[in-house]
Nucleic acid binder design. Structure first.
Lengths: 402, 402
DNA sequence: CTATTTCGTCATGGCGCTTAACAAATTAGT
DNA sequence: ACTAATTTGTTAAGCGCCATGACGAAATAG
């Protein structure tokens, strides 16, 4: 609902169209696409008034986008207002599709999303990837991508790009996995191992999850902090509708913020990091369960049943989260904190202590804490949508690739 | 006739002009100004190749800027290269000037900076403002502004705007001081109390200090964390050359990041905030001095003399800073941390423990810690330069105001 | 049925950048 | 010293893109 009229690519910053007439044209095509995409079926006249151009100009822009197959004309609107009714425009359901893929520790998933945001094809393979060498895993992923692309093409779509979410740190080149501890992958360039011919983007699953929250969340603001937990604790910072990536691409590592500086040692070399108190392993252990065997799902189950040990463990994890988030809120003054991933399912038992800690320690107007509606679907959807956004951000480039 | 003059906040140089031909022209004028300003005397041909426009176009842009008094022609260059020598262009030394002002706890200061970045006039009044009512203080400030403007005008400059740095939180309207505890000012709109006729911007001194670091620092990157201390501890986050303000304008409040969650209570309501360990009062007390009577300058003096109590106090403050900064580095992955304000003078005794703590707790490629070259001059210069930047960012708007 | 309102399109025009050509000013080569 | 080559800055013509204003089309209001 927030107007996503940002000019720059969320996925590839640095790229700016030149300030020449062609660049202006391309930016205006993008503004039309964004407006129609965000505000549903719209007439040319409405689009014109939204983006501040004249009806005549918008007409020519729309013509071009229809010829490229990016917009569709639905026919006359039927409103009760006086005057000739406009002709409703929508983004095309038969144009480009974003292919999203997720390499999880326990599964592989691929989906295709059209410009309207609808998932049009998907494929999943269950089974652990922990410790498997990259080649066979990526081979299976490529096969799933092939299936999904074929299915999308049967529906009249064509793939505009492939975005892959991985559970680990990714270099700023958006292709190289620097380290994915739970897969045991290091310094691996995914480019040569995945289907060529499709523009490829690789990113951290927490980053894609936060973008999904930004693009698909119900009332997600343009400035928020996204906290997700799978095995470790991941975070992402979104400022003014843009994901903050950091110098090395490692921003958002909330899991290693010090909570109790003299606390237990952490694998990262520090002491008392948040992960020591609110990470999966720590919480399972505090609840009297066995990490590695039992999983997060069990926690939600037990907590719902009223298990006091589990509830206490979650309460304490919430307190630790609250302390770490206090620092983040003081530093960033975000509009909201969104709990995603596994935290979403555990939120009912984390939130009270988390919010109490946050309220106690922050003086100002505070900061809303919300729970993700997307849950574990976030990274996959975010990946697919990142491709769709790239098309919206530069429709002229996509049109050339038909 | 012309687009309405949009008030620019110092940290938002990227404000969008409409994507119409006039907007394009204005952006290109800005690109010429920025290029000439940043890379010294340049010929039209060089500017053209830098910004990707043709020589012909740049010629007309330059003509317009010279007519407006924003650029000057220095005459033919004399390089050893073949071909006709270019005509060197510089930003004008007689055009608009940025008027910067600082309301300190113990002084008032005003200066005028020309487009070349040179300080062309200044005025200072010493004497405490602590607890004085706003009217007389602002009256004195207005008088100093009058002096500086008059002196600048004698040198052929005209004031393009006034930017005021205050030691406190400022609302996002850039006019209202929400609270300045050391002045005991609250919810005060400075607009009616300062000379009218000049575009006014008010901001936190730490924010202006970090912008000064960004614009004037020797090798300051575009992504860094600025930490300064006057009475409290202020911080500012610069991402991709832009100051991160936060939803309420309160971002960067490093002073209240929890360091020891169960530590002593803080005025903010929390416990164990950084300010309890590295704030002026805390450090003075830990050094065996009397807060309120002794000041920061004394600490540097004593430390240089080898006072062990003072050195220990500073070492411990450095450790606390290191813990708080570890969290910030994990969250933001900045390229550098810059110590400014009073911390710059104390850096020799803070740095060792600070860097040790940071190195111990962060695994990745780490983050350089540097010391500001500007020191206490930062906020004043940043304020004046913010006006200059606004002129560079939209020279057409400034030209209209001549 | 007429007047009014709004939509989409068309022809015209203005603005801004590019292209191409040219004179001016310097260096390199003979 | 003289010519050729190179680079700069300017000029005129051209084209792309958006704005303006007028028009027919399609609805509602009276």
């Amino acid at each position: 609902m927030t107007a996503p009229l940002q000019e720059a690519h969320p996925s590839s910053p640095g790229r700016r169209l030149p300030d020449t007439q062609q660049g202006m044209r391309r930016r205006n095509l993008a503004r039309v696409m964004h407006t129609v995409s965000a505000e549903g079926p719209l007439s040319r006249a409405t689009v014109a008034s939204r983006i501040g151009l004249t009806r005549a100009t918008v007409s020519t822009l729309v013509d071009e986008l229809i010829r490229s197959g990016l917009l569709e004309e639905l026919g006359p609107e039927r409103p009760g207002r006086v005057g000739r009714p406009g002709s409703a425009l929508t983004v095309s359901g038969r144009g480009p599709a974003g292919i999203g893929a997720e390499i999880g520790v326990d599964h592989l998933a691929v989906c295709a999303v059209d410009l309207r945001g609808a998932v049009r094809a998907r494929a999943v393979r269950h089974g652990t990837n922990r410790g498997r060498p990259p080649q066979p895993v990526l081979g299976e992923l490529a096969a799933l991508v092939g299936q999904v692309v074929a299915e999308a093409e049967r529906e009249g779509l064509w793939p505009a790009g492939l975005a892959v979410a991985v559970p680990g740190l990714v270099a700023r080149d958006a292709r190289t996995v620097v380290r994915a501890p739970n897969l045991d992958w290091h310094d691996l360039d995914l480019g040569p191992l995945l289907p060529a011919g499709l523009p490829l983007t690789v990113d951290n699953e927490a980053n894609f999850g936060s973008l999904a929250e930004l693009w698909l969340g119900e009332a997600t603001p343009r400035d928020f902090l996204h906290v997700s937990a799978e095995i470790g604790i991941g975070g992402a910072v979104v400022v003014d509708g843009r994901l903050l990536r950091g110098t090395h691409g490692f921003a958002g590592e909330l899991g290693h913020v010090p909570v109790h500086p003299e606390g237990p040692e952490c694998a990262c070399g520090g002491r008392g990091c948040l992960e020591q108190y609110a990470g999966e392993e720590a919480v399972l252990r505090a609840a009297g369960l066995t990490p590695g065997q039992d999983r997060v799902e069990l926690l939600a189950e037990r907590a719902a049943q009223g298990d006091t040990d589990v509830r206490r463990a979650l309460r304490e994890a919430g307190t630790a989260l609250g302390i770490a988030l206090t620092g983040a809120v003081n530093l960033l003054d975000p509009q909201a904190i969104v709990l995603g991933g596994a935290l979403a399912a555990l939120a009912p038992w984390l939130l009270p202590s988390l919010e109490r800690e946050l309220a106690r320690r922050t003086a100002g107007p505070g900061c809303v804490v919300t729970v993700s509606r997307l849950g574990p679907e976030g990274p996959l959807l975010g990946a697919a949508h990142s491709v769709v956004r790239a098309v919206l951000d530069d429709p002229a480039a996509a049109a050339e690739r038909v």
